[in-house]
Nucleic acid binder design. Structure first.
Length: 533
RNA sequence: GGGCCGGUAGCUCAGUGGUAGAGCAUCUGACUUUUAAUCAGGUGGUCGUGGGUUCGAUCCCCACCCGGCUCACCA
């Protein structure tokens, strides 16, 4: 007895676990069962009664003429008179999300995940069998309804039910109708519940899908070819990050989940695909935050014969077009701000902006030259209270100073351009300035959304950069870039000058949906599994 | 990984060193146009886990688990 009690208690605390105490719970009596188990037993009894009425417990299909949201969209504005002549007969299906019962009549609200529609169920409009079914329905059940549209006394669009069909039973109680599901942990772990109960969640993910579709349409319209490149790679390159490791059994070799598609896409520009893009997942073995999920979706595109300046203009056009297409405007709320995604975006030279802000912070004049020399740059970092990076020279320090002084306040779209070569192993130097590369990052909402540069296509210089990265790696930088001989060999065949850019899709969607956390725009964000007990 | 905050009924949340509370959900009864329906009456909890202090712990202390925010790192 004690053991059964304990099992019930455990089930209470782990509602996402399948029920395992069937049989053991039976016979304990209501006083010994948790509310959830009681409700499950009641719903199982209801299902048995439903099958005794002759309904299949799990029918295989149900032919509808309309979806719930289709009906709502088509007839939302029709008056009661318009719904009568001619009468609109319909067959639809959905999940019951609410029941208001009045004895021999009831109002049942059906949801198809996008919209909700009320169904009016009354005894004298149904067969006795269907009426008996209606009394055995629980909130959460899947049902089919045939009937005609009308408006109630309170003018609500409704279906006057003539027939009911049972489609599937919901054994577990849904979260409360008014407050919905608030517990973010449960929302992420059981996203299906979140989708059932919180209508805005569906809209966020529809916006996400429309965003990706709009980007595809834009790039296709500009002559870019969409491709798919390896996500399991022998060398994880194209970014500075730690990869996940996996293993191929037949080849008995380790593979890395990609941290970026960059090097493969650039091989394709060598192969003559002058405009190419890919939208897919990257994997980086790093911490989790409101802006980081270990797997995230990235757009990367490469465009032969253009440089990073052309990419800035193109990015402005891309993002303002996508915003207009997806949410209908280039001005939208994000937290306490209103972001204006219309072109042109602000442009800040990294070292100029860092020097200017550093000078203002310290009440002196700081020159760009100070940021270019390792000793003076490090001293500057110390005076500013910025923790200087462990290894590396002036470039890493300058980038760290910029981020510390500027990043959080870059809410309106801002291009930060001209990065130190040291932190950009795949970017092309500016003519006459080998310490600086033609690279920019786009900040919006206080975080980085895009990263782009004129692509380094000089194989000798590329090999030198990789070797410098190997030195960093030897010095303990686990995120330093690995040597990729095959990639250098591809460059030796001659890669056209090209601009390339990566845009973080998740972060872009955060902006367009006013979501404060990346987990709100990823259906199943990575969470630590519940312990096995 | 560090700091701060949280975990109490299926859901949303109160609360106290002395047998655990509300609303919704659920059950019973009434009710054939409701909108968080209403009315009456019930059921439902090892208060995240494990130790400790105490006559007694859901509450105090310690450790751990899970989550949130934040810093560090990154896109």
């Amino acid at each position: 007895m004690k053991a059964s009690w304990w099992i019930n208690g455990r089930l209470n605390r782990n509602p996402w676990r399948p029920l395992r105490c069937r049989g053991r719970c039976v016979g304990l009596g209501p006083s010994r069962m948790s509310s959830e188990v009681v409700q499950t037993e009641q719903r199982k009894a209801n299902l048995e009664a439903i099958t005794r009425l002759g309904f299949a417990a799990y029918p295989n299909q149900f032919e509808t003429t309309h979806s719930v949201s289709g009906l709502v969209e088509a007839y939302r504005d029709k008056t009661a008179a318009e719904l009568e002549a001619p009468r609109v007969d319909t067959v639809t299906a959905g999940r019951i999300v609410s029941i208001r019962s009045f004895g021999k009549a009831s109002f049942v609200v059906l949801s198809d995940g996008r919209s909700r529609l009320q169904v009016y169920v009354r005894q004298d409009a149904l067969s006795e069998r269907d009426y008996q079914l209606s009394k055995l329905l629980d909130i959460g059940d899947q049902v089919g309804v045939a009937g005609h549209l009308f408006r109630t006394k309170t003018n609500e669009l409704s279906i006057w039910a003539a027939k009911l069909e049972f489609l599937a039973k919901c054994f577990l109680p849904l979260p409360e109708k008014w407050h919905g599901l608030q517990d973010v942990e449960v929302r992420y772990r059981q996203r299906y519940l979140d989708l059932i109960v919180n209508p805005d969640v569906r809209r966020v993910f529809e916006t996400r899908t429309r965003t990706v579709a709009a980007i595809r349409e834009f790039l296709n319209g500009h002559g870019f070819l969409e491709v798919e490149t390896p996500m399991m790679q022998p060398i994880a390159g194209g970014a500075l990050a730690r990869p996940f490791v996996t293993h191929h059994n037949a080849l008995d070799m380790n593979l890395f989940l990609r941290i970026a598609p960059e090097l493969y896409l650039k091989r394709l520009t060598v192969g003559g695909i002058e405009r190419v893009f890919e939208i897919n997942r990257n994997f980086r073995n790093e911490g989790i935050s409101t802006q980081h999920n270990p797997e995230f979706t990235m757009l990367e595109f490469y465009w032969a014969y253009v440089d990073y300046r052309r990419l800035m203009d193109f990015t402005e056009e891309l993002l303002s077009t996508v915003a207009r297409q997806v949410i209908g405007t280039t001005q939208f709320p994000f937290g306490d701000h209103t972001i204006d995604m219309s072109a042109p975006f602000r442009r800040l030279s990294l070292r100029d902006a860092a020097a200017e802000r550093a000078g203002a912070r310290l009440g002196t004049t700081v020159t760009v030259e100070e940021l270019r020399h390792p000793d003076s740059a490090r001293q500057l970092a110390v005076r500013l209270g910025v923790a200087p990076p462990k290894g590396g020279g002036a470039g890493k320090v300058a980038a760290a100073i910029f981020e510390a002084l500027w990043e959080a306040e870059l809410v309106q779209p801002t291009f930060v351009y001209d990065f130190p070569t040291e932190v950009s192993p795949l970017s092309k130097q500016k003519p006459g300035d080998p310490d600086t590369v033609e690279r920019f990052e786009l900040y919006v909402g206080g975080f980085e959304v895009a990263n782009a540069f004129s692509e380094l296509n000089d194989p000798v210089e590329q090999r030198r950069r990789f070797e410098a990265q190997l030195a960093d790696r030897a010095a303990g930088d686990q995120e330093a870039h690995a040597m990729d001989d095959d990639y250098v060999r591809a460059l030796e065949y001659g890669m056209p000058p090209a601009g390339g850019e990566g845009i973080g899709i998740d972060r872009l969607v955060m902006l367009l949906t006013n979501s404060p956390s990346i987990r709100d725009v990823i259906l199943f964000p990575l969470l630590r599994p519940r312990s096995a007990e």
